[in-house]
């Protein structure tokens, strides 16, 4: 694609911009900022990826992954405020999910140990882990507020914190995983997934593209389960004290 062709694609920005101006939706500033940011961010990442791929250095690959983890954790931590120690929990989860995923992929030689493979797949793993952690924390915090009486009721019977929070925790894990599982069920029927479409547009054999996409789907299922379970099971003990009392979220975050 040439820069002229890319420039012409701005027509797709002009259409919603025109609509928001005509209907006075007040979104024009956000649309312009979003467009400029996406252009700058993607061009920067394009140049960085070119540099990293050409350098073929392990250090740069690790740095790229660390950068992704830092950006993702910063995003998730905001949603988890109110849970003591959430920053460490999120960073640890992202590290573990990335390490497990890459360990399996590279350990069994499912993908070759090349930056062109490792970096984009790590991006998908970390990105998905971020989204799942966000979904989980969102639901979990709602559940904690709605289920506070049942939590205290179970503690009042002498139940342990795990028993008291089990219903809220499992419901939040289940809810956060539903979009991933449901999306898998309709994959290929409703829409062609992004990675597969990208490969096909790039000229890859459709069957080869399907195989890569399946790999990513299975990987995403693992990251979804690991992210929600790890964040959940590491977070809940922070909500109780040694005397088996429920401290809950910090008051300003309820």
């Amino acid at each position: 694609m040439s820069f002229l062709q890319l420039g012409l694609s701005l027509i797709f920005v002009a259409i919603p911009l025109g609509l928001t101006l005509f209907l006075k939706l007040g979104l024009e500033k956000d649309i312009i900022i979003a467009t400029v940011r996406s252009v700058i961010q993607l061009l920067i990442i394009g140049y960085i990826l070119t540099f990293v791929f050409e350098s073929d250095s392990v250090i740069f690959i690790i740095l790229m992954i660390l950068l992704m983890i830092a950006a993702a954790s910063q995003n998730v931590v905001k949603k988890g405020t109110g849970i003591p120690g959430i920053t460490a929990i999120i960073i640890f989860t992202l590290f573990v999910v990335e390490a497990v995923s890459m360990g399996i992929l590279l350990g069994f030689s499912i993908i070759p140990a090349e930056p062109e493979q490792i970096i984009p797949i790590s991006g998908m793993v970390i990105g998905n882990c971020m989204v799942l952690s966000l979904l989980f924390l969102n639901k979990f915090k709602d559940e904690l507020v709605a289920g506070e009486e049942v939590i205290e009721l179970i503690l009042s019977f002498g139940g342990a914190p795990e028993a008291a929070i089990s219903r809220s925790l499992k419901s939040s894990i289940r809810t956060s995983m539903i979009p991933t599982v449901e999306a898998m069920k309709t994959m290929g029927l409703v829409q062609l997934p992004g990675m597969m479409s990208g490969l096909i547009i790039g000229g890859a054999d459709p069957l080869e593209a399907v195989m890569y996409q399946l790999l990513i789907l299975f990987l995403i299922l693992t990251t979804a389960a690991l992210s929600s379970v790890m964040v959940g099971y590491m977070s809940y003990p922070k909500l109780f004290n040694q005397r088996l009392q429920y401290i809950g979220l910090r008051p300003s975050e309820k």
Partner: peptide, 28 residues
């Protein structure tokens, strides 16, 4: 807490049957 038992203002219940709720103090 088994010896000093408590009933809450809104009588909170878990989803399920009356038995499930009576069984809750044992289940935990």
């Amino acid at each position: 807490r088994k010896t000093v038992s408590m009933a809450f203002q809104s009588s909170p219940m878990i989803h399920g049957t009356v038995y499930d709720n009576l069984n809750l103090p044992c289940e935990v």
